[in-house]
Design a binder for these strands. Sequence first.
DNA 1: CACAATCCGTACCACTTGGTACATGTACCA
DNA 2: TGGTACATGTACCAAGTGGTACGGATTGTG
Lengths: 203, 203
Amino acid sequence: MESQGRPPDSPGSEPGQAGSAREALLHATIAYLAEHGIGDVSLRQLAAALGTSHRMIIYHFGSRDGLLVEVVRAMEEQQRAALADLRREPATSAADLGRRMWQRLSDPALAPFERLFFEIYGQALQGRPYAQPLLDGVVDDWLDPLADILTQEGLTPDTARAQARLALATTRGLLLDLLATGDLEGVNQAMEQSLAAFERGRE
Amino acid sequence: MESQGRPPDSPGSEPGQAGSAREALLHATIAYLAEHGIGDVSLRQLAAALGTSHRMIIYHFGSRDGLLVEVVRAMEEQQRAALADLRREPATSAADLGRRMWQRLSDPALAPFERLFFEIYGQALQGRPYAQPLLDGVVDDWLDPLADILTQEGLTPDTARAQARLALATTRGLLLDLLATGDLEGVNQAMEQSLAAFERGRE
DNA sequence: CACAATCCGTACCACTTGGTACATGTACCA
DNA sequence: TGGTACATGTACCAAGTGGTACGGATTGTG
């Protein structure tokens, strides 16, 4: 008599996971936070906006922070998926690959998520516990695949790693700029300079 | 009979400003926030930590957000002062100047302030009103002086501006990396690659 | 002196917070 | 049919929130 009673709402979810109501709630939360930020959102505000009660959030995630942890985790998964996407595309050169990736990231449609990313990043740097999971791997998870691409271009492992780190930092720095100023053209020029300098170094 | 009564505690402050008690409170606040972040700090916690009462913060700054606005403003002033410092030093080349500036910024002693900076930046991107003053000029205030330095090196105004933007973004991106990973050596290597690439482009 | 201004503390308020207790509904299985 | 786990709503709580009212020092100036 170890499993009786009502199963989770929809049986089509991974084993060990709670039901799909939880999943739906999680994704709705991410969409909401992308628009409103994470800073001033209370259980009740959030629940009301999501059309449920704060009790449900507690039920599914244990606590407010429990929910936020899951949000961060889900966002990391999204990032990793984007990275996998990127690597599947056949690209002519590393620089061109960078160009395409940048074009993707600078799409205004992604801005809300990037704002959320930097907000949580900031919180994580200040030690807010729910945000900590983002910090682990926020750099390292990108370093290996980026360095891979660059070693395939003929860079030595050490240079490739440093260059990967640089590319990541440049991208994030320019995103920060873009989100603050909205000056897409100016930021694009800066990115182009960076890529051009890299190409010049390759010859 | 327009100015009678008790003057501010210490007479050594700008005219039109409130007294030095206010100033002292402000600086103590900055020091405190650098250590604890801005996210979860309430009036009362802050007042207690500063050895005063929350009433005093309201008295001097009108509201919690009023204080935070002043904190942000003061931090901007600090940034501008650092920039002025930087430009006063005679430097051999733009790249060397960049090296020295980076050495300064990557000093662990500055980490708390940089964490605070990025936290507020994140809040500003989400529209938190007190943080908005940081957003105006967070890029532009650096662009002109940096572009100046680069035009003096012989770059055309357009390239100088783009390069300035790039340098700023790279610096901030690498700081973000450094604060998350603590890997000073790795980040230094990336910065060195960036500066080397710039120098290579100059020949 | 009396007045004015700065400065600061105590007490209080209405409201919101995260979280809990408990009852209830619902769908499944034995 | 009755039990059980999932799911959800209502009511509640202690604690903390930003902010105000008000009273009182302190320290100058006329």
